[in-house]
Simulated scan of single mutants.
Amino acid sequence: MQAICVAGKNEIAIEGLRYVVDIYPDSNIFFIPNKNDLGVDTWQPSFKKYALGRGIKQVNLEDLYEIENLVFLSLEFDRIISPKKFRGAQLFNVHFSLLPKYKGMYTSALPLLHGEVTSGVTLHFIDAGIDTGDIIAQIEFDIDPGDNARDLYFRYLANSKKLLRSHIDSILSGEFSSIAQESMGASYYSKSSINYSSLSIDFNKCAFEISNQFRAFTFREYQVPRFEGWQIIGTEILLDKSHLKPGAIVSEDSGSFVISTVDYDLKLKKDYYPILWVASESGDVLALELALKFVDDINARNENGWSALILASYHGQIALIDTLLNCGASMSVVGYNGTTPLMYAFSYYERHGDERAFKMLLSRGADVSAVDNAGKSLRDYMIERNCLGLIQYA
Rank of each mutant, 00 (worst) to 15 (best):
K9I: 07
E11K: 12
I14R: 03
R18G: 05
I32E: 00
P33E: 00
K35E: 15
K35Q: 13
V40R: 13
Q44W: 04
P45A: 10
S46A: 12
F47Y: 12
K48D: 11
A51I: 10
Q58G: 10
V59D: 05
N60H: 11
E62Y: 10
L64A: 09
Y65E: 05
E66A: 11
V71W: 06
F72N: 07
I80T: 10
S82H: 12
S82V: 12
P83W: 03
K84H: 14
K84N: 14
K85F: 13
F86M: 10
F86E: 08
Q90D: 14
L91T: 04
N93G: 07
K101P: 00
K101Y: 01
K103H: 01
Y106V: 04
T107G: 13
L110Q: 08
L110I: 15
L112G: 12
L113C: 09
V121M: 06
L123Q: 04
H124E: 07
F125A: 09
I130G: 01
I130D: 04
D134L: 05
D144I: 07
D144Q: 15
Y153P: 09
Y156D: 15
N159P: 04
N159G: 05
I168M: 14
G174N: 08
S177I: 13
S177C: 12
A180V: 12
M184Y: 12
Y188P: 04
K191T: 13
S192T: 14
F208G: 05
Q213V: 09
Q213N: 08
F214H: 08
R220C: 06
R220K: 12
Q223T: 13
P225V: 03
P225F: 02
F227R: 03
E228K: 12
G229Q: 02
I237A: 07
L238P: 09
D240M: 08
H243T: 06
L244W: 07
V250D: 07
K267V: 04
K267S: 11
K269H: 14
K269W: 14
K270A: 02
D284L: 03
V285M: 08
E289M: 10
I298A: 00
R301G: 02
R301Q: 15
N302H: 02
E303M: 06
S307A: 06
I310K: 00
S313L: 09
L320A: 02
N326E: 15
A329P: 00
M331K: 05
V334N: 07
G335C: 09
G338E: 03
Y349W: 15
Y349E: 07
R351K: 14
H352T: 15
H352G: 00
D354M: 05
E355M: 11
L361G: 02
L362G: 10
N373R: 08
N373E: 13
G375A: 06
K376T: 01
L378H: 06
D380G: 05
R385P: 01
N386P: 00
C387G: 00
C387K: 09
L388G: 06
G389D: 04
G389H: 01
L390S: 03
A394H: 05
